[in-house]
């Protein structure tokens, strides 16, 4: 195991299971509150993602460490004048680990190359975001075993990187994938080929209704308005992908609904009251999962 966490693809099943087991122990309050006492985490966010950053800051604080960061505005001006390589070399001198979010794909790998301390990728461009995938898996595992489950991915599957990483992680667990997406926002064919080669069964469906009775997990991603020529066609598409209590009435009893948040119109607020709704739980799980990640790289 490298000490950096850059991509979920770098993990095998055993490594994922171990990390999720550690997160579970942390969640059960079985952890040393001073495990990272005196350790400093630098959060370098070159594009805003307040929640991911807060979640990492909460994670280091719960383990007795502290975090330092540059505001996103300064980070932008830093990005203009200085190479990322130089920024990383400098910040390596201030902290025991670096969490980075950057608009360019591959930025976290570059950071890992120049850093003298462990690097955790908190999202690079449309590339990887492994902490999100790990907390998605963790949330599913709270309700069911990961092996052989039927997972519906719904929404923007072309640009939705969380769906890509989740799909590739689930392929390690022989999960079956069901995809439901608007025309033009389908899962990239290169990813379909890759998942197929890993032995994953993928079925595309017109509507979530076609498959609602069979799925264990409904993973919803945001359909962005700017992907559509006008708001009328956006609303048209968005409404036909909406998760409602009426739809969930025919779902399996234990089926869960996940969403990487923030949601807009994808999930009817009335769903929040149903036992299927796990998206707030999912977001809360970000802290123990990120604590487990920090323990793994810093200790």
């Amino acid at each position: 195991m490298t000490r950096h966490i850059i991509s979920i693809r770098d993990f095998d099943r055993r490594q994922i299971d171990r990390l999720l087991d550690n997160a579970k122990r942390i969640d059960a309050q079985k952890y040393d509150r001073n495990a990272l006492c005196g350790k400093i985490l630098a959060t370098l966010f070159f594009e805003p993602s307040t929640r991911t950053r807060m979640s990492f800051e909460a994670a280091i604080a719960r383990l007795g460490g502290t975090s330092i960061s540059v505001g996103s505005v300064e980070a932008c001006s830093m990005a203009k004048g200085e190479t990322l390589a130089d920024t990383i070399r400098v910040v390596s001198g201030y902290a025991d680990a670096i969490v980075i979010r950057h608009p360019k794909e591959g930025a976290a790998r570059l950071a890992a190359h120049f850093a003298g301390v462990p690097v955790i990728n908190a999202g690079d461009g449309s590339g990887q975001h492994p902490s999100q995938t790990l907390l998605d898996l963790y949330t599913i595992r709270q309700s069911m075993k990961l092996d052989g489950i039927n997972v519906a991915l719904i929404g923007d599957l072309r640009y939705g990187r969380t769906a890509h990483s989740l799909a590739s992680a689930l392929s390690l667990y022989n999960a079956k994938l069901h995809t439901i997406s608007p025309k033009g926002l389908e899962l990239p064919s290169s990813l379909i080929t890759e998942l197929g080669e890993r032995g994953m069964e993928i079925t595309d469906h017109q509507e979530i209704h076609d498959i609602i009775k069979e799925v264990d997990v409904i993973y919803v991603t945001r359909i962005q308005r700017e992907r559509f020529p006008d708001s009328a066609s956006y609303f048209n598409v968005a409404s036909s992908y909406r998760i409602t209590p009426e739809l969930l009435a025919s779902a399996k009893k234990h089926a869960i609904v996940l969403h990487p948040l923030p949601r807009v119109d994808e999930i009817d607020p009335r769903v929040d009251q149903l036992p299927h709704a796990k998206y707030f739980e999912q977001s809360k799980n970000g802290v123990p999962v990120r604590m487990a990640m920090l323990l793994q790289v810093i200790q």
Partner: peptide
């Protein structure tokens, strides 16, 4: 969008 196409 690749980092290798920047001034790094």
């Amino acid at each position: 969008g690749c980092i290798s196409n920047t001034n790094e």
